[in-house]
Amino acid sequence: MKKVNFALLFFFAVVSMSAQDITGNWKGVLKVPGAELNLVLHITKSENKLTATLDSPDQKALGIPVTSTTFENSTLKFTVDNLTIEYEGVLDKNQIITGTFKQMGQSLPLVFTR
């Protein structure tokens, strides 16, 4: 009986981990030399594909189209080709994405929260 309970517990733990939902609005503060920029990432899912837009409210830049967005094995990756932006971060159990924002040869830490 204990083996069955353990197997069921393990199964549900694996299912819940693989079912992490990345969609929604994520906010972060990018600390650049001499300033801090608020960023908002809006992720949606349609037909099993993720799409996103990025806002930089401090620069009055809203709805910037994200070129590609992927989320696999708790890792979020997105790019904005025309601005040479790349981001890669890991979603933890507390719904915090910790990663690196890259643009024009610079790499900066960037944490997103809901």
Rank of each mutant, 00 (worst) to 15 (best):
F71M: 06
M104G: 15
Q103K: 12
L62P: 05
G63K: 04
T113L: 10
V15I: 15
L8M: 11
Q20L: 15
I96T: 12
L9C: 14
N73Y: 07
T113H: 14
L8C: 04
I96N: 00
W26Q: 10
N48H: 12
T98M: 05
T69S: 07
T84N: 12
A7F: 14
L83K: 12
F71I: 04
I97N: 01
V15C: 03
A35G: 02
V4Y: 14
D58I: 00
L110D: 05
I96Y: 03
F112M: 08
K45A: 05
A35N: 11
K102W: 09
E72D: 09
D21W: 04
I64K: 03
T70L: 04
S46G: 15
T79C: 10
Q95H: 12
I97A: 08
D81V: 14
Y87S: 06
M104S: 14
T23K: 04
G105I: 05
N25S: 12
G63Y: 07
T51H: 06
D55R: 03
K3T: 15
F112W: 00
I85D: 11
N38F: 09
K2G: 15
H42K: 13
V111T: 15
N73C: 10
D55H: 12
V90L: 13
V111F: 04
N38Q: 14
G34H: 04
N48G: 07
L83V: 05
N48S: 15
V90D: 06
V66Q: 05
V66D: 01
P57I: 07
S18Y: 02
W26L: 00
E86Y: 07
N94Q: 13
F101C: 11
T79P: 08
K2E: 15
A19F: 05
L37C: 02
G89E: 03
L41S: 15
V15T: 12
K31R: 14
E36H: 01
A61H: 05
T69G: 02
A19M: 11
F78N: 09
L76I: 07
I85L: 00
N82A: 11
T69P: 09
T70Y: 12
T69I: 10
S46V: 15
L62R: 12
L37P: 09
D21G: 06
F78I: 04
V80E: 01
